[in-house]
Design a protein around this nucleic acid. Structure first.
Length: 263
DNA sequence: ATGGTCGGTGTCCGA
């Protein structure tokens, strides 16, 4: 089974790109973030035509929005949403094979890393704590669970182009990486990318639109993650971050991350 | 040191 996550930055604007990705890489399930579309206007048909007939969408007008499109049927959809502010930032589904997926779009958090003066940063910290609590509460249940999405935190030094220069930049500040680590520990989540790539090795999933040449400067961050519950450890076969797709015409600033499981 | 670019409820907001 192959499951991918991608912050697509408008699913309508990038529908041709996502179709190409699905045709070339053939994931069974794709979790999208930043769809930027309300449910009634979600482009269901192109996904349907490509075989992704099972769709769990949770969007809103213009901002945020998550969706799960799948070739495998759902046993259940929901729960939905963690967000204090009522944004569409989470969608849960359980696949027919029993694997539970949680698709997340964690708030970016604005520019100033001070919750006292920046409400968006305060919201981000609150959201990370809520994620921790949600899974800590059900730690005794040992079913196969995957948490995927744009978590908007680059936790390790090797997840950013310059650890020193980003210590006071939202996404890599100590308060965020600490909460991120606590959320990860609360459910004994496995960081699937780092299961396959050693922590010394730099790897990114996002490159800013503002760079004159994203590839030459390579000032990236690893903001997109796949976490697996401990009982899935033996089933993990591979992970891929599709860096090349950052160079496609009309690219998103994020590239997809895909994991392969033997289930 | 600064400002750089995207997409959408477009002449601002959020990223």
């Amino acid at each position: 089974m192959k499951i991918a996550t991608w912050n697509i930055n408008s699913v309508r604007h990038r529908i041709a790109l996502v179709a190409r990705f699905l045709r070339e890489k053939q994931p069974d399930v794709l979790c999208l973030q930043e769809t930027k579309v309300e449910n009634g206007l979600f482009p269901a048909l192109p996904f349907h035509k490509l075989g992704y007939v099972h769709q769990a969408i949770h969007g809103q007008k213009a901002y945020h929005g998550v969706a799960v499109v799948s070739r495998l049927p759902f046993r259940k959809t929901g729960p939905q949403d963690f967000c204090r502010e009522g944004h569409a930032r989470h969608m849960g589904v359980t696949l027919a094979n029993g694997v539970e997926l949680h698709n997340f779009y964690v708030p970016a958090g604005g520019d100033i890393p001070d919750p006292g003066v920046n409400a968006k940063f305060d919201h981000k910290l609150h959201f990370l704590r809520a994620m921790e609590r949600f899974f800590a509460k059900r730690k005794s249940r040992r079913d196969p669970v995957l948490l995927l999405g744009d978590l908007n935190v680059a936790p390790l030094e090797s997840d950013v182009w310059s650890h020193k220069q980003l210590l006071d930049v939202v996404s890599h500040t100590p308060v965020e990486t600490k909460l991120f680590g606590e959320a990860q520990a609360a459910f004994d989540w496995i960081d699937v990318t780092r299961r396959f790539i050693p922590p010394e090795e730099k790897i990114y999933s996002w490159w800013s639109y503002r760079a004159a040449d994203w590839e030459a400067s390579d000032r990236g961050r690893r903001l997109d993650h796949v976490w697996a519950s401990p009982d899935l450890a033996g089933a993990l076969k591979s992970q891929t971050i599709f860096k090349k797709m950052r160079g496609w015409q009309k690219a998103s600033d994020h590239v997809p991350v895909m994991v392969e499981l033997d289930i």
